[in-house]
Nucleic acid binder design. Structure first.
Length: 735
RNA sequence: GCACCCUUAGCUCAGUUGGUAGAGCAGCGCAUUUACACUGCGAAGGUCGGGGGUUCGAAUCCCUCAGGGUGCACCA
């Protein structure tokens, strides 16, 4: 027996050494597996692309969970002989990364991005992204992720950029991308547009003011934003509202807080007669709903009164005021003019930007959009319909199943997707202008800048490039072998919180570009919370760094703690106590191995089957076992079957628990205990038989447990007399 | 407002197609120069949120009520 078993199991010393050995073997790469005869050249492919972590810093426990789940499926399939590819990469995460770096520069140097300029800021962000990338890669390796590093991708590298330009061009040619002036969600803090999904609504107390534009104005108006009223062009009432019917169509000129405005009264069904006074002041340039109502009644939406910095642009006393100051000023003016009729406290849902926390200011802006309700040429369906169909038809299955309903509900409410951003880090919109001319896709030939061409200033929403991830990572638009072999991929595993952001966009982009699905199954994991059920966050200081956890308890323990009992789509709680329990389990397994290997050291020879295999006797080869031993073998056969089915049906949380329970409470507590008197006895045949049995059970347990706890199982396997492959990682899954 | 999820042992959660309620942790009693104290054995603990229905049989399926949570929309 190897002397290493005389000491307790030490994950710290073992895990990095084992990972290095795996990596050096090249066997994370499916081509190398075929090369080395581990995988059959005609084996069925199995592919997962890693959801690329943002290069914004470090990985958290949610990432660790994601890695554990994906690595389980990958290792399982690899052992089953599939041509298995797990493809790594990172995401430039445009807004997120830029805002982290901008904040840092502001803090350290007191400079804004405009002080630095586009080129210098990009240089700084890239340097940060590289450092962040390196940290992330080492974290991924620490967790034992068997990723094929030879294929690593980045959402902003040249291959992925070409994919982005190509898809943009194709969508544009198909008439699905357009440039349009619309009310967008403007984040004054981040100085960029954001999509509807990047908004977080927060409930806050607010005041609802009821006022009149002027003494002789016939209708009182309710508003929470009096400062915007200097931009009003009309008042809308419900068509059936008898209170106001007589005024519909009438027009008024008033001077409101120094600003002359012209108000026309219109009737529109959108207005809720129950709310406030039943009359809405229309500010088309600063409200989505007002813009739409104004459109229907041919009212102008050109009166802009708030700029990108959320400051007033009108003349008079409000000039250059922040909107919040202007609000107070207008209210004072209303009071002094005796126009304020009521002031009530209400709670309102205020739109804030997810990344910066800034209060979203609706502004009209010329932006790029993907049109979701227009028929896709050649498909006879809209993008929305294609997105729905992929899931409804069962081509893509989502786990847990009820998220399919959430997905459908979301798609049905989907509006056009705003894809342009006014930040600098990201894929620049691939459109070049010269006067009236415009070129889309690739830059004009030659030195286009000298020839008077100018590229669009904006960058693309980061999800535009992540939407292509399943095929851009495989080298598309080149017709690569990888693309032909591995697409569509088999599984996409990620947190349910990015179902809309990412999963939906991948389905959209892939259906459009390739006319197929990006993946066959979606496995959504829940949030990892702390022991009290709180979200992990920097401000609470309850963050766990996977690296620290691995250092303290071992990556194997962290993986088990994250997997066992954690059903898909459900949030989980993690504590050091739980992880510690699985550290103990790794040591338990270590001691089981010690006991069994020690017993076999005294054996005359390693038991061997006639066909040369040294493992899992079955059928007639079991005849020399006692009936109790045959019963034990049947029991582990049953376990093997159950674990296999559980993994196949995505119940990794049950599979992990079953093996754990078996190893500790059957193998160790019962079988080892009952073996002690036999091994100490004098019946040589019985001893031989029992030693073979125990070795078989250990071998089988290692194989079943390997996808879950790859390090300790590999380390024990290396000392097994039944070792039949270079690594347990590429040994055969029992069946 | 619309949709979805959850409610099971003190705590955290499992429970795949309906067939005698499970695990981990905590707690209680006992054992122990032992493969392993990173241990073992044992006992205790639940009218499965309330009510109704379907069924020979319901934690599981249907309806309803209550409490908790999440997503989407909207609040002018």
């Amino acid at each position: 027996m190897d002397e290493k078993f005389l000491k307790p199991y030490d994950p710290g010393a073992t895990e990095s050494r084992v990972y290095a050995a795996w990596e050096e073997s090249g066997l994370f790469n499916p081509d190398e597996c075929i090369e080395q005869g581990v995988t059959a050249p005609d084996a069925k492919p199995y592919a997962i692309v890693l959801p690329p972590p943002n290069v914004t810093g470090r990985l958290h426990m949610g990432h660790a969970l994601m890695l554990a789940v994906e690595d389980i499926f990958i290792r399982y399939k690899r052992m089953r002989g599939f041509r298995t590819l797990w493809l790594p990469g990172t995401d430039h995460a445009a807004i997120a990364t830029q805002s982290v770096v901008e904040k840092q520069i502001k803090k350290d140097e007191g400079l804004s991005r405009h002080d630095l300029g586009r080129e210098e800021l990009l240089k700084r962000i890239e340097a940060f992204a590289v450092a962040s990338h390196d940290t992330i890669i080492s974290q991924l390796k620490t967790m034992g992720a068997s990723l094929d590093w030879s294929r690593e991708a980045f959402t902003l590298d040249e291959t992925r950029s070409r994919a982005v330009r190509t898809v943009f061009k194709r969508m544009s040619d198909a008439g699905l991308i357009y440039r349009g002036l619309r009310i967008v969600n403007w984040d004054p803090k981040g100085q960029t547009t954001i999509s509807d999904d990047e908004i977080v609504y927060e409930e806050r107390p607010a005041k609802l003011y009821t006022f009149r534009y002027a003494k002789d104005f016939p209708i009182p108006i309710a508003t929470t934003r009096p400062e915007t009223k200097v931009g009003d062009v009309g008042v809308a009432v419900h068509p059936d509202d008898v209170r106001y019917k007589e005024f519909v169509g009438k027009e008024y000129d008033v001077v409101f807080c120094d600003v002359p405005i012209h108000i026309k009264i219109v009737a529109d069904k959108e207005v809720d007669p129950e709310f406030g006074t039943g009359a809405v002041g229309l500010t088309p340039a600063h409200s989505k709903v007002d813009w739409e109502i104004a459109d229907r009644h041919e009212l102008s939406h050109e009166t802009i009164i708030i700029n990108e910095y959320a400051k007033m642009t009108v003349d008079g006393r409000l000039r250059d005021m922040k909107t919040t100051e202007a609000r107070e000023t207008v209210v004072e003016w209303l009071k002094s003019e005796n126009l304020l009729e009521k002031e009530e406290d209400i709670t309102q849902n205020i739109a804030t930007a997810e990344r910066t926390g800034g209060i979203v200011e609706p502004l009209p802006k010329l932006q790029w959009w993907v049109e979701v309700d227009k028929e896709v040429p050649g498909r006879g369906k809209t993008l929305k319909e294609l997105m729905l169909e992929a899931v409804r038809s069962g081509e893509i299955t989502i786990l847990p199943e009820h998220f399919e309903k959430t997905y459908v509900h979301w798609i049905e409410n989907l509006r056009d997707w705003c894809i342009s951003r006014q930040i600098w880090y990201g894929h620049r919109i691939p459109v070049w202008y010269r006067g009236e001319e415009a070129v889309v896709g690739e830059a004009p030939e030659g030195d286009w800048a000298r020839d008077g061409w100018v590229q669009d200033e904006d960058t693309l929403d980061t999800w535009f490039s992540s939407g292509l991830w399943t095929f851009s990572t495989l080298g598309w638009p080149e017709e690569t072998n990888d693309f032909k072999i591995y697409h569509p991929t088999d599984l996409l595993e990620t947190g349910y919180d990015i179902l809309f952001f990412w999963i939906a966009r991948m389905i959209l982009m892939t259906e459009f570009t390739l006319g197929t699905i990006p993946f066959r199954a979606v496995y959504l994991h829940g949030l990892v919370r702390d022991a009290q059920g709180r979200k992990m966050s920097k401000s609470l200081g309850n963050n766990m760094d996977p690296l620290d956890v691995a250092a303290k308890f071992g990556a194997d323990a962290a993986r088990m703690a994250l997997i066992v009992g954690n059903t898909p789509g459900t949030d989980m709680r993690i504590s050091e106590d739980k992880i510690k329990g699985y550290k103990h389990f790794a040591n338990k397994l270590w001691n089981i191995a010690r006991f069994i290997l020690e017993a076999n050291t005294n054996a005359k020879s390693v038991p061997e089957k006639k066909n040369g295999s040294k493992t899992w006797p079955s059928g007639p080869e079991r005849d020399h076992f006692s009936s109790r031993e045959r019963e034990i073998l049947e029991q582990i056969d049953l376990l093997t079957k159950e674990v296999t089915v559980d993994i196949e049906e995505f119940r990794v949380y049950m599979a992990a628990e079953k093996i754990y329970h078996y190893a500790w409470h059957e193998l160790a507590d019962k079988i080892l205990e009952e073996s002690k008197p036999i091994l100490a006895g004098s019946d040589e045949a019985a001893k031989d038989s029992r030693r073979t049995l125990l070795l078989t059970l250990l071998d089988r347990t290692l194989r079943l447990l390997h996808p879950f706890m790859p390090f300790v199982t590999e380390e024990i396997y290396q000392s097994m007399p039944t070792k039949d492959a270079k690594f347990l990682m590429v040994a055969k899954w029992p069946s």
